[in-house]
């Protein structure tokens, strides 16, 4: 851990002033940043602790959605009655992640801004383009068990580790940010990036910008949804593959559906064209298979993670069945529904 200045502003304007500059990190719950500091992966010269900013709370929006404060904790969000009743997919995804203790400390803004768990990113003795631009990527050709099968680049094959973000992608949430250039709203699909030639940039946030809230749109998919997560053990592990499905049935047919994957790419993986294949269709394995194939088009393993390609396909089919049947995956009973 390097030495850094520490500021603890109490209002947004002060936070943005303190947060200006390149080597600054905003600290919220600290469940990821503190690890990164200890591992010398994050080396900010100034840490701005935003825990005292008035960004907590969960509120109804005028449009009929819900606004999740950036500093509301994952636990508060997962167990919020409105979230549980109207956006059970989000609640389920949150509860699939980490542990009760971590969720108590982790915030919503921090969750979507957490860094990859790539072994090499965390180990400063190994080369990593995400950590040190230009060093090269040791994960390519290395231990790639947890790495991406979609949207990779020759510079980086890391995945985004969040469960919450996968549900938010399926729900088409919006991220509200503020910064030196003023306030703006980012569609969730545009919030996280693919690695491309700038793998050190996880999101489209500009330097100094701060997430203030996450807005959930009115359509909430309270009946036909699921969050199915496959991992190395039954709890407290990052997803090898996870699937969030949000679906609305009208009669026998699928009126609306969203499918987002976790554990397979540098961002929650959605392809509207795959969802288009299901819209207006009757649910069934054949239709689900076609959608899965479209969603996974171009998926390719790195050797150690080749298994993720068939695993993702099977998981998509199962998740679509769970959502259709209205029998979402329980996060406490580990038997797969």
């Amino acid at each position: 851990m390097i030495r850094f200045d520490y500021a603890r502003p109490t209002d947004l304007a002060e936070a943005l002033r303190e947060g200006a500059g390149e080597e600054v990190a905003y600290l919220a719950g600290g469940t990821n940043l503190v690890d990164l500091l200890k591992e010398n992966v994050a080396r900010p010269t100034r840490v701005v602790d935003i825990a005292r900013l008035p960004l907590t709370g969960i509120e109804d929006t005028a449009q009929g959605g819900l606004r999740l404060g950036a500093l509301a904790t994952n636990t508060e969000t997962a167990y919020d009655q409105r979230v549980q009743a109207r956006y059970p997919l989000l609640s389920s995804a949150l509860l699939a992640g980490a542990t009760a203790q971590l969720r108590n400390a982790a915030t919503n803004g921090g969750n979507i801004n957490q860094r990859t768990r790539c072994y090499y990113f965390y180990d400063v003795a190994t080369p990593c383009n995400k950590r040190e631009p230009g060093q090269g990527c040791a994960a390519i050709g290395g231990v790639s068990r947890i790495h991406a099968i979609l949207g990779t680049s020759h510079q980086c094959i890391a995945t985004h580790p969040s469960d919450m973000a996968v549900a938010l992608a399926a729900l088409k949430a919006e991220v509200r940010v503020t910064g030196p250039g003023g306030d703006r709203v980012i569609a969730f699909a545009d919030y996280h990036r693919l690695p491309g030639d700038e793998p050190w940039r996880d999101t489209t946030l500009e330097p100094g910008e701060l997430v203030t809230a996450i807005d959930l749109p009115p359509e909430s998919f309270p009946t036909n949804f699921t969050y199915l997560k496959l991992r190395e053990r039954l709890s407290y592990a990052f997803a090898l593959v996870s699937v969030a499905v949000a679906m609305r049935l009208e009669g026998e047919r699928i009126a609306e559906v969203r499918i987002a994957l976790g554990g397979v790419a540098h961002k929650p993986w959605r392809r509207p064209e795959a969802e288009d294949l299901l819209r207006g269709q009757e649910p069934g394995r054949e239709a689900f298979g076609a959608a899965a194939d479209a969603l996974l088009e171009g998926a390719r393993g790195q050797g150690g993670n080749d298994f993720k390609v068939p695993m993702a396909r099977k998981a998509i089919l199962r998740a679509l069945e769970q959502a259709t049947a209205g029998t979402p995956q329980s996060q406490t009973d580990k038997r797969i529904a």
Partner: peptide, 29 residues
């Protein structure tokens, strides 16, 4: 079902050297 220390053969180094990625049973297991 879980325990396995994974080596990067080129670097000659154990890579999953932490509790998050070296898996032992959790309560649910």
């Amino acid at each position: 079902l879980h325990e396995e220390t994974l080596a990067d053969l080129r670097l000659g180094r154990w890579m999953n050297h932490n509790y998050a990625e070296y898996h032992i049973p959790a309560h649910a297991d």
